[in-house]
Simulated assay, not measured.
Amino acid sequence: MQKRIDISGLQTKAIEAMMGLENYVSGSELPATLKELIKLRASMINNCAYCIQMHTPVAQQSGITVQRLMALAAWQESPLFSDVECAVLAMTDEMTLIADQGLPEATYNRCIELLGETATAQCMMQIVTINAWNRIAISTKMEHAS
């Protein structure tokens, strides 16, 4: 693989700003398992190997089983995810693929119903943040050390 620019070395203020966003979502009141499901699902959709490799062990440490990690690729067909997780995964899919149909009212309303406005907003920001990290990692061809 051809070496590409190191944004963290060239654009330190931009990465500091991204880290501010990362610190915000990391400190949100969402359960760690929900945060990791969002990160992994968006990274799967975006084909971001770097982020998948980074977040898989973290997801396991947060209590997500290997079976659920494997089922995440087909979450819509799996009985292993709660109603809240399914609503958030639907929002993750739709926001990650935002150009396809936007965020449909049904998905948005389901998240508000199950999570409330604050947690829905926190989920949205988690989705936005991981998508930004995916785009940095993919376009600079970052490789995970493991």
Results as ranks from 00 to 15, higher is better:
50 Y>R: 13
50 Y>T: 13
50 Y>I: 12
50 Y>Q: 13
50 Y>N: 12
51 C>R: 01
51 C>A: 14
51 C>F: 04
51 C>V: 05
52 I>K: 02
53 Q>W: 01
53 Q>P: 10
53 Q>E: 15
54 M>E: 08
55 H>L: 04
55 H>T: 07
56 T>V: 08
57 P>Y: 01
57 P>E: 10
58 V>A: 15
58 V>M: 13
58 V>L: 10
59 A>G: 10
59 A>K: 00
59 A>Q: 03
60 Q>I: 02
60 Q>N: 09
61 Q>Y: 05
63 G>C: 05
63 G>F: 00
63 G>D: 01
65 T>A: 09
67 Q>F: 02
67 Q>R: 08
68 R>L: 02
68 R>V: 01
68 R>E: 07
70 M>S: 15
71 A>H: 08
71 A>G: 12
72 L>T: 00
72 L>V: 00
72 L>G: 00
73 A>N: 09
73 A>L: 06
73 A>M: 12
73 A>T: 03
74 A>K: 09
75 W>A: 03
76 Q>N: 15
76 Q>I: 02
76 Q>L: 07
77 E>I: 01
78 S>I: 01
79 P>A: 07
80 L>V: 11
81 F>H: 06
82 S>A: 13
83 D>Q: 14
86 C>I: 06
89 L>A: 07
90 A>T: 12
92 T>G: 14
94 E>D: 09
94 E>H: 05
96 T>S: 09
96 T>K: 03
97 L>F: 06
99 A>T: 15
100 D>A: 14
101 Q>W: 03
103 L>M: 11
105 E>I: 10
105 E>Q: 14
106 A>D: 13
106 A>I: 12
106 A>L: 11
106 A>R: 14
106 A>F: 12
106 A>C: 12
107 T>F: 05
108 Y>K: 11
109 N>D: 14
110 R>S: 12
112 I>C: 05
112 I>V: 10
114 L>N: 11
115 L>W: 02
115 L>C: 11
115 L>D: 08
116 G>E: 11
116 G>W: 08
117 E>F: 05
117 E>R: 07
117 E>K: 09
117 E>N: 10
120 T>C: 14
121 A>M: 12
121 A>C: 13
122 Q>G: 08
123 C>P: 07
124 M>T: 15
126 Q>F: 05
127 I>F: 03
127 I>L: 03
127 I>P: 02
128 V>N: 09
129 T>V: 08
130 I>L: 05
